[in-house]
Design a protein around this nucleic acid. Structure first.
Length: 136
DNA sequence: GCCAACGTTGGC
DNA sequence: GCCAACGTTGGC
């Protein structure tokens, strides 16, 4: 099975990377957008997910790993919405800012830049690697 | 705090 | 099924 790469956004105020590391595991809830939902459903166990802080920080701070594929969002009865389980995998030594990403030619097409409001998006392996490289 | 972008809703 | 109005997100 081929590993896929993703990026998710969270407002640190709501759920930060630090909190995620304290918890050790979380289900990714609160997605109320079909496109983001469809991306969640595409995630497979073992896929790697960049964790981006929106609003405050505006940087990629770490990598999470998918440990459980999508299931009904436990915070709602609406069967439209799903969550996946994530665990922290690795922190980036140097968080990569949105500014750096925008300035990087090879990253100018990623959804984070092109479609600012999307909260769960796929990344190409090359894009994922590039961001890791910038963060190490 | 403002506003642009864009997804969603609802009237026709 | 179109499209205007509205709500939400997120960068600045």
């Amino acid at each position: 099975m081929k590993t896929k790469y993703w990026l998710v956004k969270s407002e640190p105020f709501k759920y930060s990377w630090e909190k995620f590391n304290e918890d050790g595991r979380t289900f990714w809830d609160g997605v109320r957008n079909y496109q983001a939902r469809n991306n969640l459903k595409e995630m497979r166990e073992g896929d790697l997910v960049l964790f981006y802080h929106s609003n405050e920080g505006k940087n990629v701070v770490g990598i999470a790993k998918v440990v459980k594929e999508f299931y009904q969002d436990p915070t709602t009865d609406d069967t439209n919405w799903v969550v996946v389980d994530l665990v922290p995998f690795e922190s980036l030594k140097n968080p990569v800012t949105l500014e750096q990403i925008k300035a990087e030619e090879s990253l100018k097409d990623i959804s984070l830049v092109r479609q600012g409001r999307l909260s769960v998006m796929p990344l190409k392996a090359a894009e994922f690697d590039k961001i890791l490289q910038m963060g190490s």
